[in-house]
Design a protein around this nucleic acid. Structure first.
Lengths: 138, 138
DNA sequence: TTTGAAAATAGACAACT
DNA sequence: AGTTGTCTATTTTCAAA
């Protein structure tokens, strides 16, 4: 199970996942080896799914981000779920409860690209789009 | 500017941000030093905002995830944006266009916790909640 | 969980192209 | 400019306690 030490490690890694085991150990008064053991176990158990980075997409030419709610046409859900992989613009996809059944986060260069994406998605179901104005930083 | 080599690095780091500069270099045929230079510049420019981890919340006792659209009461927006920080359940918050103006992702232990959170959020505005059933993996 | 020791890497700097 | 080699300090890794 995940104890309070593990939770501390997870919290720290959430803020900076590139810290060395030595640094992590210093922060929570544990030897590097012990930290390594714990982190490795968290990986094996699947608690840590992935080490990744947060990118400022605007700085690399992707100026538009949006959430799209998709109400998939009856009987097409499985098909659409598979199709999701083929869209590089879709960065995260979730199945959700409610009137719509799929929630997407998309990142595109500009409005034209979003329009083209929506044209395609409209073949799968009804779309409801919310442009992202900014992230509220915590 | 960000060239194609940088984009490759970003793509790789998005999948595994704990790789060493040496490993990154092996993947794209570049020396560790060069990789280090590039990654450091990407950090300085703000392209890489953060190194973080993706956690399987269900495995640590947080069984419920949801998206919440919030239509904040008139004149209360700034107040609410500041309040967001006080909710540990809120993992990401965005300002969005449309009928609602804030999009939240929340992680809670169970339905009761969600209910309590919604009770509080309802003081700020009208809520629209979508439970997350699963993530569609890419 | 800790210690210890070998292998690998990080970080800094000078030099090269 | 971007890239590379070299150097040392630090870290990772793994065995053993």
């Amino acid at each position: 199970m995940v104890d309070s030490t593990d939770k501390k490690l997870l919290d720290i890694l959430k803020e900076n996942s590139r810290l060395s085991f030595a640094d992590l150990g210093r922060k929570i008064n544990l030897s590097p080896s012990s930290v390594r053991e714990r982190v490795q176990k968290l990986e094996e158990e699947g608690v840590i799914k992935k080490y990744d980075i947060q990118i400022n997409n605007k700085l690399i030419g992707y100026d538009l981000e949006a959430f799209i709610l998709l109400k998939v046409f009856p009987g097409k859900l499985k098909y659409v779920i598979n199709k999701v992989n083929e869209f590089p613009e879709i960065t995260v996809a979730h199945r959700i409860t409610g009137n719509q059944n799929i929630h997407l986060k998309v990142v595109v260069e500009n409005q034209l690209r979003l329009q083209k994406l929506l044209d395609k998605l409209m073949q799968f179901g009804d779309t409801n789009t919310f442009l992202i104005l900014s992230e509220i930083t915590k």
